[in-house]
């Protein structure tokens, strides 16, 4: 985009031409703009508006001012779900990212069968999370469950407050590590062989090369992966809905689950909207922070 320098005087003719250009530009953008406005901007505005009302979906919405917002900051159930979500993200993201990089590095060696393995690794991500949740629920079942049968135990994986969150996080990591690895594979493929060769000539071993050459050059990929997976981890819902419904005793009650409960179990749309908007704001802030951190540390030019 070329921006006119401030204070530049343009002749009327040029200004008209620019205007026409702008109109044409927006005209071309219109189709996708309609989608964004109708399905993104409007719902966000509706959610913000709704957060000041009490609405049970049947009777007329009633204006309640800041009541719902006050609850976001004070209701112990909501504070618990915020804490659970953070714990969940801290469990999932590091594990999943490290596992993704490790898998990518191994696959990148191009050993026989790598292509097939690559497809298999992505399979869990391709499957519907809800269906996976149901399968894992059976695997985790205390009686007649596959995992307990294998271990010869009868551990209540999903009913023990100490085990439920790690179990749910494990399913998330399992289903997404392969998908994350794909991005790192692409990132590895973009690193020129000459750079690695230079490192080798300078006497760097495999480990040193990885830490000081490969990993820094993977930063653009890392940035993208961290931003997208962090956001999706904060929004985790499907598999938790299938596995634990937020139980036991709220141990896996992540924010998205709490939003669902408020909206569709207790039919308190205003409370749910306030929570959803709060989650949205938090996610925007996290993305901005990530961008600030990576902006100074990313090199896109690999030549």
């Amino acid at each position: 985009m070329h921006e006119p320098s401030s204070g530049a005087r343009t002749r009327p003719g040029r200004r008209r031409a620019r205007l026409r250009e702008a109109v044409a530009g927006y005209g071309l953008l219109a189709p996708s703009l309609v989608g964004i406005v109708a399905f993104l901007v409007v719902p966000i505005l509706v959610a913000i508006g709704l957060s000041f009302y009490k609405w049970d979906l049947l009777s007329r919405p009633r204006f309640v001012g800041l009541t719902n917002w006050a609850a976001v900051g004070t209701d112990p159930a909501l504070l618990n779900s915020a804490a659970v979500t953070i714990a969940y993200v801290l469990l999932v993201i590091p594990l999943q990212t490290v596992l993704g990089i490790a898998l990518a590095v191994l696959l990148h060696r191009g050993l026989p069968g790598s292509a097939g393995l690559r497809s298999i690794l992505v399979l869990p991500w391709v499957c519907a999370p809800l269906a996976l949740g149901i399968v894992w629920k059976w695997i985790f079942a205390p009686t007649d469950g596959a995992l307990n049968a294998l271990l010869g135990t009868s551990i209540a994986w999903l009913s023990d407050p100490d085990l439920a969150l790690p179990a749910v996080a494990f399913v998330a990591v399992w289903s997404q590590a392969g998908y994350v690895a794909l991005f790192f594979l692409a990132g590895l493929a973009a690193i020129p062989a000459s750079v690695l060769e230079a490192a080798q000539l300078d006497g760097a071993g495999a480990v040193r090369t990885f830490w000081y050459v490969t990993l820094p050059l993977l930063r653009p990929t890392l940035f993208f992966v961290l931003v997208t997976t962090t956001i999706s981890a904060f929004q985790a819902f499907d598999s938790i809905y299938a596995l634990t419904q937020g139980g036991p005793a709220g141990a896996t009650n992540v924010v998205a689950m709490q939003i669902y409960t408020s909206a569709f179990k207790t039919f308190d749309m205003g409370r749910a909207a306030a929570l959803a908007v709060a989650l949205f704001v938090v996610l925007v802030l996290i993305s901005l922070a990530q961008q600030l951190y990576f902006r100074r540390r990313i090199t896109y030019d690999l030549s």
Binding site: P142, L158, T244
Partner: peptide, 10 residues
């Protein structure tokens, strides 16, 4: 009776 860990979730 079966444990509630079995029956609560199923």
């Amino acid at each position: 009776a079966p444990s509630a860990a079995d029956t609560n979730t199923n």
